[in-house]
Amino acid sequence: MTTDAMIRVQGLEKSYKDLQVLRGVDFDVAPGSIFALLGSNGAGKTTVVQALATLLAVDAGTVTINGFDIATHPQQVRESISLTGQFATVDDMLSGRENLVLIAKLRHLDNPGRVADELLDRFSLTTAGGRRASEYSGGMRRRLDIAMGMVGNPPVVFLDEPTTGLDPQARLSVWETINELARLGTTVLLTTQYLEEAERLADRIAVLHQGRIVVNGTLTELEALLPPAKVEYVEKRPTLEEIFLAIVTDTDETGGDETTSSVPTGTREDR
């Protein structure tokens, strides 16, 4: 355990009647870092996030966020955090800018319009700011959702499976947004089922299994848990995701669909 943790969780326990979901969860998150919490469905990831966000009472354990205990200073904790869940909470009837202005007003901030414009620029949504959120793509909606959570510049952000249901391009866009948050000093706790997401983003990775953190470390430390890699010479074929991204990126750059000419058009039987 470090002495300067932005988030500190010790002995966290939570049960629902006879079902014990958390059995003594411990971890620290350093300031300005990205901490990924991995686990299968039902492992308790969302329960951890809800507890840390003061949305769920726990049975035992202590949690401090930004120096405040969630049990004794819940209001100060809420003022220190932002929570973005698995589904975007934007108002589809409002424009992107209006969504941000609304949150700024609810937080009683000075000059809500200026706050909204700064966030639209920060999250690359300025040109779409006047459009209804219902017209946004999945990636744009998610970026707007995260931007709404950043109104007031909270030092800690919880992202609960933020790329669920997004296409590869949108997922990459959200990854860039998360990296930018950490670069600017925000502490990010990310829950995900996507191992590549944790690999690409996280400074530290913890695995939640059967209600406990069974491993916690950097990617290098986790790799050291397995036998050393063997060198083998194999033919590496591009993944379908790599092919998709190459095609759509080239099409975006040229403004057309020239890339489709290099893709075979025959049926399986033709080939």
Rank of each mutant, 00 (worst) to 15 (best):
V77L: 03
N41G: 09
S124W: 05
R97K: 13
P155I: 05
V21Q: 02
L22D: 01
F158D: 00
V157W: 07
L201Q: 02
D4R: 14
P238Y: 12
I81M: 04
F244V: 03
V115Q: 08
A5T: 05
L120N: 05
G256N: 07
G44W: 08
L102R: 03
T62C: 10
E118W: 15
S95V: 01
L56P: 05
A53V: 09
N216W: 07
P112R: 04
R143Y: 06
T89I: 08
S82T: 01
L184F: 15
L190Q: 04
L102E: 06
T62Y: 15
R143C: 00
G42N: 02
G67M: 09
Q169N: 05
L100S: 07
E180K: 13
R78D: 03
L119N: 04
N179Q: 11
F87T: 08
F35D: 01
D18E: 15
D4Y: 13
V115W: 10
V263S: 11
P154Q: 03
N111D: 05
R97T: 07
G217W: 02
E180T: 11
R141A: 06
T267N: 06
E235T: 13
Q76G: 10
A43S: 06
R237F: 11
N99E: 10
G44Y: 07
D28P: 13
T220F: 14
V174W: 02
D203F: 11
L100F: 09
Q210A: 09
A182I: 07
P168L: 12
E241A: 01
S137R: 08
P31V: 03
A88E: 06
K17L: 13
Q20I: 14
D117L: 09
V157Y: 05
E241N: 05
R78H: 10
G129T: 03
F244S: 05
M148C: 06
G185P: 03
D145I: 01
N111I: 04
L208V: 08
P112L: 05
G85T: 10
